[in-house]
Write a protein that binds this DNA or RNA. Structure first.
Lengths: 191, 191
DNA sequence: GCCTTTGACCTAACGGTGTTAGGTATACGC
DNA sequence: GCGTATACCTAACACCGTTAGGTCAAAGGC
C-alpha cells in the first residue's frame, strides 16, 4: 500500500480510537456501540471493519494505548534515591493515573468486558510495566519474593476503591502516603 | 395471593436465581442471556418477567444474595481477642470468599455491569458489611480515620489481583498473613 | 357442580447489538 | 487515460432485552 494511503489509513484508525475513548469517558467503557463510534467519525458501522477486525479489536488497541500512556508516565519518574521518595512518587503517579480516567482503569486492570482478552502483543506492554516495577523495587533492595505482588495489590486496591466508591473524591487517594509508609516500614524491617 | 401459590412463586424465583448463578460461574457474570436462563428452568425468556422486572432485577437479587452469604460468613468469625488472630481470620475468610466465586466477586465489589446499580434495599446489605467491619476494628482500638478504608483497600486489592491475574492459584492469597502483619504493625505503632 | 377470576406461560414482534455479504464510486499507481 | 485496489455504502443475519397480547389451567366463591 502506498505511503500516502497508509498514512491516511493510520490517521483514520487513530480518529476511530479517539472517538471510542471519548464515548467511553462519556457513557462508560461498554456504554457505546459500533454505530455510535461510526457516527462520531462520519461513517456507518460496517465501514469500521476496514480499520479494525471488530469491537474487541478496538478494545485491544485501547488496551495497548492505555499501557503506553502508563509507561510514558513511569518514564518521567525517578527510579533511584530515597526509597520513601521513589515509592511515594510512584504510588501517587499510579493512583492518579487510575482515577483520572476510570474507563481506562477498568479496561487495563479489571476484567470487565465479557469476551475480551488482550492480544499477546498488547499484553506484552502490561508485562513491561510489571517488569519496570520489579526493577525499581530491586534497585531499592526490595525484591523479596512477593514484594512486588504485595505492592501492586496495595496500589490497585486503593485505586479501585477510590474509583468504585468515591469517584471524584479523595477518600482513598489521601491514604497513599500512609500506605507507602506502612509498606516501606514493613519491608525494611524484614529486609 | 394464596399461600400455596405464593410459596410456589417464591420457589420458582429461587430456581431462576440458581440457574443464573450457575450460568455466571460457567460463562462469566455477563456471559448469559435471559433466553439461556429461561431454557435452564424450562421456560421462554418473556415468562421470566413474571418473576423479575428484567435482567437488572435478577442481578440485583444476586447482589443481595451475595452480600447475605458474606454476612453469614462474617457471623462465624471471632470478633474479639488477639488482634492478629481476629484480623488474620477475617482477612482469610474475606479473600477466600472472593476467590471462591469470581463472578460473585465482580458483581459485589467491581462496577462491571453497564447499566446496573443495586437497589437501595440491596445496597443496605453492603453497608451492613462495612458497618460490621468498622465495629470489629473499633473493638480492637483500630478506629483511626481511614483505617477501615486502608484495610478494605488492602483486602480487595489482594483478592482482585488474585482473581484477575492468577485464578485458581495462590500467588496473592499466600500474602494475606504478611499483609495482616504489615497492616497491624503500622496501625499499632501509631495508635 | 359450575363460573369467574387470576396466575403462569406462550408466540409474535420491536428496536437495538455485533457482524457479514455484496455492491459502487473514488482516488491512486502506471 | 486506464485498470485496480481502496473506502465506503446498503441490506441483511442472528442474537439481545423487552413489550403486547393471547391461551389454558388452577383456585375460589356460590
Amino acid at each position: 500500500m502506498s505511503d500516502r494511503r497508509a498514512q491516511r489509513h493510520e490517521a483514520t484508525r487513530q480518529e476511530i480510537l479517539e472517538a471510542a475513548w471519548a464515548l467511553a469517558r462519556e457513557r462508560g467503557l461498554t456504554g457505546w456501540s459500533l454505530r455510535d463510534v461510526a457516527e462520531s467519525v462520519g461513517m456507518r458501522a460496517p465501514s469500521l471493519y476496514g480499520y479494525f477486525d471488530g469491537k474487541d479489536a478496538i478494545y485491544d488497541a485501547m488496551f495497548a494505548q492505555g499501557y503506553e500512556q502508563l509507561l510514558a508516565r513511569l518514564d518521567e519518574l525517578p527510579t533511584r534515591g530515597d526509597p520513601a521518595e521513589v515509592l511515594g512518587r510512584g504510588a501517587h503517579a499510579f493512583v492518579d493515573f487510575c482515577v483520572s480516567d476510570p474507563p481506562r482503569h477498568q479496561l487495563l486492570f479489571q476484567r470487565v468486558i465479557p469476551g475480551f482478552e488482550p492480544s499477546a502483543e498488547s499484553y506484552a506492554l502490561a508485562r513491561e510495566v510489571l517488569s519496570r516495577l520489579h526493577a525499581i523495587l530491586a534497585d531499592l533492595d526490595l525484591d523479596r519474593p512477593g514484594t512486588v505482588d504485595l505492592w501492586t495489590a496495595l496500589l490497585t486496591g486503593l485505586a479501585s476503591q477510590q474509583a468504585s466508591n468515591d469517584p471524584g473524591g479523595d477518600r482513598w487517594t489521601r491514604l497513599v502516603d500512609r500506605a507507602v509508609d506502612m509498606f516501606l516500614a514493613s519491608e525494611l524491617t524484614r529486609a
